[in-house]
Design a protein around this nucleic acid. Structure first.
Lengths: 148, 148
DNA sequence: TTTGTTGCAAAACGTTTGCAGCCTC
DNA sequence: GAGGCTGCAAACGTTTTGCAACAAA
């Protein structure tokens, strides 16, 4: 129910943005947005392509195009966890999550931390207008740590 | 002088690591390590290639191979500021920095912040052994901010 | 002498681009 | 009907791989 509301809100925001920018409201664009808001995890462009292929005659070019638009209106965020792996994820109301990445098995865990949030708040100053951030902590997860 | 010491220490660490792992101590490997420790900024694989071509008959494959080894023994760190731009930077004595990246002109600025350092210190716990982190703040630099 | 490492070239990979035709407005 | 958007395929830039020759141990 909560999820459903988030998709509705995202749809509205998206429509507003498309109108404002005089872009067209194509079914593909809304289908991709829905995928992001239905998904639990980050998605890669190719994952979206594989899922959509079942229901649509769609191309990777369109997916990248739509991702670009969704990034521009802040409905998704981009993650560059490591080389050759660009992921995208719906942007919740706030984007104050951080990620722990296991360098051995690649597992990624989201977390939140009050002190880090506070420390980050004021990183805008007269010389730099902050838009968003990414904080990744690399290390060994419980399982992989034991093996060493 | 301080720089020189850091290179010496890095060389020693590298030698120890190569011996421990039964890898060979080739001149190319030490030359690449030296480039990292002489450099002020991050370097891309191709930048290293361009610099080395003058003095060595070297290939990109070797550079990627060496980078892999240097990452494994924590003598350099990898930065993935954005798609298609992988940079590497010496790690020793250099791991408490954060980066502000202008999304308009691509300029990258290193900075340090006491509160963030403190907030990050304790992100290791019994479930996760932190090795290193990356914190990037994306936004508009002074120049690009004015234009908007 | 053994075999890890190299240079080189070709292949792989994710992403971007160009274009003719389609569909939103 | 105009022109933004699409699918498709080819192009791109970076990284990886395969292989014969080389050189560190």
């Amino acid at each position: 129910m909560k999820e459903h509301n988030q998709l509705n809100i995202a749809n509205e925001k998206f429509t507003d943005f498309l109108i404002k920018k005089k872009l067209r409201k194509t079914p593909e664009r809304y289908a991709i947005l829905k995928l992001f808001y239905d998904a639990e995890n980050f998605l890669s462009a190719d994952t979206i392509f594989q899922i959509m292929k079942n229901d649509y005659r769609v191309s990777l070019g369109t997916i990248y195009n739509t991702i670009e638009v969704l990034l521009e209106c802040n409905l998704i965020v981009k993650h560059q966890f490591s080389q050759n792996q660009t992921f995208f994820e719906r942007a919740y109301g706030n984007n104050l999550y951080f990620y722990k990445i296991c360098t051995a098995c690649g597992k990624i865990k989201k977390f939140s931390d009050k002190n880090i949030r506070i420390a980050l708040v004021s990183k805008s100053d007269s010389n730099f207008f902050a838009q968003h951030h990414s904080l990744y902590i690399y290390g060994l997860c419980h399982n992989c740590g034991k093996k060493k």
